[in-house]
Every structure is written in C-alpha cells, then in structure tokens.
Computed example of a mutant assay.
Amino acid sequence: MSDAANDGDWWFCLKHMKVEHGAGCPDKDRMGPYPSQSEAANALETARQRNEAWKKQDAGFDGDD
C-alpha cells in the first residue's frame, strides 16, 4: 500500500493557488513536483527565498563583459 502523503507527486497550482496531488492542472500552471504536501504548500515561499538569495548573489558580481 502506498502512502499518498509521501509519494513525491505533489504540485502547487498557480491558477487555483492550491496544492494538487497527482494529475491536475497542466504543468505550465504548476510548480513542482514536490516530495510532500507540505513542501508543495510552501512553494511560493520557497521560490521567494530562492529569488532573494539569487538577487543577493547577483549583486556581488560586477558584470560579465
């Protein structure tokens, strides 16, 4: 028996702003897959944190001439 909460097929739907499990909205409208429901639920916060880290990293470069 598979534990649906841990089968790694969790997504965050940007169209409906909710977590989806398995087949759902088209991938173009989703973030993921994530290994758990809670990670999918935190997709927007994870993306925000990563974007902030990349922004800080980019600020350290003088350019790519």
Rank of each mutant, 00 (worst) to 15 (best):
R48P: 06
G63W: 11
R48C: 12
N51E: 13
N6M: 10
A59P: 03
P35C: 00
E45W: 02
W54N: 11
R30S: 10
C13H: 03
A23G: 09
F61L: 15
P35A: 01
A4P: 04
Y34A: 02
V19N: 06
D7K: 07
A59M: 09
E39Y: 01
N51T: 07
D29M: 08
H21C: 00
H21N: 08
W10G: 01
D62Y: 11
A4S: 08
K55I: 03
A43W: 02
S38R: 04
D3N: 15
F61G: 09
E45V: 09
N51M: 08
F61P: 01
C13G: 03
D65Q: 07
G63H: 13
L14F: 02
K18V: 08
Q57Y: 05
W10L: 00
A59Y: 03
W11S: 06
D65V: 01
W54D: 05
M1V: 08
C25A: 14
G63E: 12
K15W: 04
C25I: 11
D29V: 00
A40I: 03
A4M: 07
Q49A: 15
C25H: 14
A59E: 14
R30L: 02
M1E: 03
A23M: 13
G60C: 12
H16I: 05
F12R: 02
G63F: 14
D27R: 13
D9Q: 13
Y34P: 07
W11Y: 15
F61K: 14
D27G: 06
K18E: 11
D64Y: 15
M1I: 01
A43M: 09
A4I: 13
F12I: 02
A5R: 15
F12A: 04
G32P: 05
D62R: 14
D9N: 15
K28N: 06
D27E: 12
N51D: 11
S38K: 09
A43Q: 10
G22V: 10
K56Y: 01
H16F: 00
E39S: 02
W54V: 02
A59I: 04
A43S: 12
A40D: 01
S36Y: 04
Q37E: 08
D64N: 15
K18C: 14
A23Q: 10
A5C: 09
A5I: 00
A47I: 13
A40Q: 03
R48A: 11
G63Y: 11
D9S: 12
D27L: 15
A47Q: 12
Q49P: 00
S38C: 01
G8N: 13
K56Q: 04
G63Q: 14
S38M: 07
D7I: 08
L14Y: 00
G22R: 13
R30I: 00
A47S: 04
N51C: 09
M17P: 04
R50E: 14
D7V: 11
S2R: 06
Q57L: 05
D9W: 08
D65I: 06
A4Q: 07
E20T: 06
P33D: 04
A53F: 00
K28T: 08
K15R: 15
F61T: 03
D62F: 14
C13E: 03
M1T: 04
